[in-house]
Design a protein around this nucleic acid. Sequence first.
DNA 1: TGATCTTTGCTCCAATTTGC
DNA 2: GCAAATTGGAGCAAAGATCA
Length: 383
Amino acid sequence: MNAPCTFSIKNGGISQYFDVSYLDIVRNGDTSVLKQNQKTPFNQIIKKYEPTPNFLNDVNRIKFKHDLHRQIMSKRGKNLKELGTLSNNQKKSCKKVCENIINTVIFSRERNSDYKTGQYVVFVTLTLPSKQQHSDKQIKRLQTRYIENLQKTYGVKYYVWKAEAQKNGNIHFHLLLDKWIHHTVHRKLWNKQLDKLGYLDSFQSKHGHRNPNTTDVKSLKKDDKGRKIKNPTSYIVKYMTKFEFGKRPILGKLWGCSDEAKQLDYPKYQEGQPLFDHVVHLINSKKLKQVLKEDFFSFFSGRSYEVISTKYKKLWSDIKDFYKLQNGNIEPRTISQKEFIRLKNYIPEQTPTIPKIEILQQPTFEQVKLNYGNPAFWTNNLK
DNA sequence: TGATCTTTGCTCCAATTTGC
DNA sequence: GCAAATTGGAGCAAAGATCA
């Protein structure tokens, strides 16, 4: 197969797969079977839905109809996820964005730099000051405006948000931002948005002032119980993707992030790249546990960052540079990669020989001293 | 004049299958 | 797990308008 073996380095492990973007595969997918393309009574109801003043009642009605819809679809052999929950794909995307934002900000920070001026990871929670009177969609529009303010006026570049329901049924939002902004500013901006739908009026009539405490801002140093957070990345990922028992479903989009955050990726090492063999050595060292082994995909679970930072300094430095590069902190370097030919019309063999995922022989440390041939080749000076 | 709001056009999400 | 494919529609970004 002319697709390079690739390692993707994540905080909690390393995935191994073949980059099939190098192949031009003929696919015969059938889109008529897609769940979202099926004409069902529930889909028609959702299209015509107009929110009433008692939104929480609407949610219960829609949830009841969705449950019926799930039963009908289940009889057709289609299993739908519960209304208002993240699918596995969504969890995966959300996790990727959170991990990469935190890594980008942490690795890009200069020592002793002022956290108030540079990038700094903060976690913000936005709530409503009184009972929710409007649809989730309307409240989410306020949140969009609030984030827009943060981007345009306060220079927020990377953000990710997640909508959840509180026990009282009100929607609230968790946001991960890359910028320190004073908590009074957050409160001022969010309350200003809430004022548009009259939430400050109803709060004032009850409490006599128009400055409800609707925001909670914290850094990622201590958790809700005041305990020190050892691993901010896994803490945030758990927080953002957790399943909420006994809460009403959120209607519509459940999470979102900035375009810049969407572009962030994990560091990857392909066959032909100088540090590829270092990753192979790490895999062979058995410091990570292989938890999945498919024909074309494997996953090695464990504290990959801890192992790499202590035992594989060169790789660690390259990962940090990768994030700095993504963040625009450093200039791109010359890419030294073996060429793979992207095939135009890939036709599988009659009796395909499935390549086994075999880890290369355990190299000695001498083998890690790689010989890359003529140095001129890697600096593009070869004529 | 800078900040914020509105409009508009278009990007991309969610869903799932398929092949590697 | 990744990439590509397809669809309707949600929601985003950009640009211009308006506000203070």
